[in-house]
Amino acid sequence: MSDIQMIVSLVGAATVQTIVMVFFSMVFSLILGLPLGILLCVTDPAVGIMPKPVLNQILTRIVNVLRSFPFIILMILLFPLSRIIVGTSIGTGAAIVPLSIAAVPFVARVIETALKEVNPEVVQAARAMGSTNMQIIIKVLLPESMPSLVAGITLTVINLIGYSAMAGAIGGGGLGDLAIRYGYQRFRTDIMIVAVIVILVMVEAIQIIGTKISTDFMNHR
């Protein structure tokens, strides 16, 4: 096999691993982070539609603690959890667990911030018309904040690509792992450069797509 063919097949396989890791961690972190973000917004004692100061404080503390954890330490701490859920603590599948959990508080904050941008007077109008809290969340808060929600999710995906490179360090596979194993440990600078370029292109593509969707929502209002 020629050198170029080898680089292509190595980078190709690693790219697929990165995409798998980022995609599934995004899905799982959204499943957990979306309700948490909504809860953070609606229970806010000052601007929430159902103020619950104590619950809000507890959630805020948990989110802050999780967010301030260095990812590399969180990952090691979550090895046992990966073993329980995926059956192993090594590999792409196992990396999805810490990645998802690291992204949950981030997603929750991003969603909370987007929902809080909705004009409180518009929310009040919805309440005055006799909306239930659930109707306000589903029919007013989420649709009205769609452009910011999409922008926030785009940001999360990009962060996850960065984190997934770090997950490579513990045998998660993917482009970050490739760059370290070949580029750093085996002095294959060419493979490292290709891996980094692929990451750059991926980030740029996601940013462009995210911005496009977000502005499309903006233009439809």
Binding site: E121, V122, A125, A126, A128, M129, G130, P143, M146, H220
Partner: peptide, 17 residues
């Protein structure tokens, strides 16, 4: 009860979405 009263606001407050 709120569903049977109408309110018009100074800031209009329509849903932009």
């Amino acid at each position: 009860r709120r569903r049977r009263i109408g309110i018009v606001f100074q800031n209009i407050n329509l849903f932009n979405s």
